[in-house]
Write a protein that binds this DNA or RNA. Structure first.
Length: 139
DNA sequence: GCCAACGTTGGC
DNA sequence: GCCAACGTTGGC
């Protein structure tokens, strides 16, 4: 089981939008960055991820579950771009803000801090547990 | 809305 | 294959 983090601008597609998609979830399409794509190709069914609101909000608001492994991105004919499907698993009791994460020395190595522009990131098991604890939430 | 950081593109 | 120009992302 691996852990991940997905960024999305809430004005474009936020946590509530994913909730509205129900159990079927939604294609995480539109990614046009090789590193982010490679991360999605490495995902397996049942892997979990944080859902982070970028640009506005700037906090981790929920946990998602991978419900379809990497497949061609339906929004392009370019064969380079694959994506997974994710569905909402549960919201955070208390969203964990970027400020909180930046202020916690144990999370200094998180990609969210170190690689600010990467939209699909790996999260270590240790980071996962710390963030879940900060958010008062069990996966 | 600004702009720094960064990834990608394309001319040479 | 280098690197300048360009486009995009995302925190502030």
């Amino acid at each position: 089981m691996a852990y991940w983090l997905f960024k999305s601008e809430p004005d474009v597609f936020g946590w509530d939008d994913l909730i509205a998609k129900g159990d079927k979830g939604e294609e995480w399409d539109g990614v046009r960055n090789y590193q982010a794509r490679n991360n999605m190709r490495a995902m397996a069914m049942g892997d979990l991820g944080f859902f982070y609101h970028s640009r506005s909000g700037l906090e981790i608001v929920g946990i998602v579950e991978i419900c379809a492994e990497a497949h061609p991105d339906s929004t392009t004919d370019d064969p380079r771009w694959d994506c997974v499907d994710v569905r909402a698993r549960r919201p955070f009791e208390k969203p964990v803000s970027l400020q909180q994460i930046k202020g916690d020395a144990r999370l200094a190595m998180m990609a969210l801090v170190k690689s600010a522009r990467l939209s699909v990131q790996p999260v270590t098991a240790q980071e996962w547990q710390i963030v879940c604890a900060l958010g008062d939430t069990n996966p």
